[in-house]
């Protein structure tokens, strides 16, 4: 027995207030249930009064739950979620700090020795975000590309950090030592390309992470063109590659900052097949 057409028409019109995915998934069941509740009201002794009260309840129900469902599309709205752990907050803050430190060079002058420290902190921040992503992905086999890119970021940034540390104390670092310079060059290439790959992988996620991933991907590739050894930024096309690489570094830094905020603030699902959190 189906609900009267008039009821169904009115209620289906109300369902337009829900987000489309929710409507597609549960629309028919919502119509069925509302029809059953109205039928039940008609069969009770209260008659029209009961039906009117049921309609009122249905309207109130839609008014309260439809906006909540729209909000739910933009955040983690699971019945089981918990705030980020202290470790995730710390990793996220390291990412924010790393991004801020990278961008800070455009705002304040940082003398040589401190600049090396700045590079180390930036690399630590980037690696912290990659570690956070690996922790979040857990043992799940899903998102293999994202996990592979995160591992690449950790390795490349660790390599670059090691080169920065090893360059301390070398005169006019690293120019007088061609072999060291060569290795340093490849560490830089690895870092920017790993960051770009990670950005592309992150850009497949939803929300703010997507935009941060895009900024990271484009920014890293532009920043790569500014590497002195390539002689793009100081060559004939320097008018383009010079500013472009600076913009790239800024975008890279902003990408890490946003990802840091996402990692530090995002609530996590506790249950569910894809994102189950192991029992601590």
């Amino acid at each position: 027995m189906t609900a009267p057409a008039s009821h169904e028409r009115v209620y289906r019109a109300l369902l337009r207030l829900y987000p489309e995915p929710f409507r597609t998934r549960f629309g028919d069941e919502l119509v069925q249930l509302s029809g059953a509740l109205l039928r039940e009201a008609r069969e009770r002794r209260g008659g029209r009064g009961d039906v009117a009260a049921t309609w009122l309840r249905l309207l109130l129900d839609v008014a309260l739950t439809a906006p909540a469902e729209h909000l739910d599309q933009r955040r983690v709205g699971h019945s089981l979620s918990r705030p980020p752990s202290i470790a995730m907050r710390l990793l996220g803050l390291l990412g924010v700090a790393g991004g801020l430190i990278l961008v800070s060079a455009f705002v304040v002058f940082i003398p040589g020795p401190f600049n090396l420290g700045r590079l180390v902190l930036f690399n630590v921040g980037a690696a912290a975000i990659a570690i956070a992503v690996l922790r979040h992905a857990g043992a799940s086999s899903a998102r293999l590309v994202l996990k592979a890119a995160a591992v690449a970021v950790i390795l490349a940034n660790a390599w670059y950090t090691a080169m920065v540390v090893l360059s301390i104390g070398r005169p006019e670092y690293p120019r007088p030592d061609p072999e060291f310079r060569e290795v340093f060059l490849w560490a830089g290439v690895a870092m920017w390309w790993a960051d770009a790959a990670f950005g592309i992988a992150v850009a497949r996620l939803r929300g703010a992470a997507r935009w941060a991933g895009l900024a990271l991907a484009v920014g890293s590739l532009l920043a790569f063109t500014g590497m002195g050894h390539l002689e793009l930024a100081n060559g004939e096309a320097g008018w383009f590659f010079g500013p472009a690489s600076q913009v790239g570094i800024t975008m890279n830094g902003l990408g890490w900052i946003v990802l840091g905020v996402v990692v530090a603030t995002r609530r996590r699902r506790i249950a569910g097949s894809a994102a189950a959190v192991p029992n601590g």
Binding site: F22, R57, D61, L64, S79, A271, G272
Partner: peptide
């Protein structure tokens, strides 16, 4: 407690998504 259809299915959706 008398839940409306919207409240019931919004909850069902979350419980399904959470694997409960």
């Amino acid at each position: 407690v008398r839940l409306g259809p919207g409240a019931v299915y919004a909850t069902i959706k979350r419980l399904l998504d959470d694997g409960l």
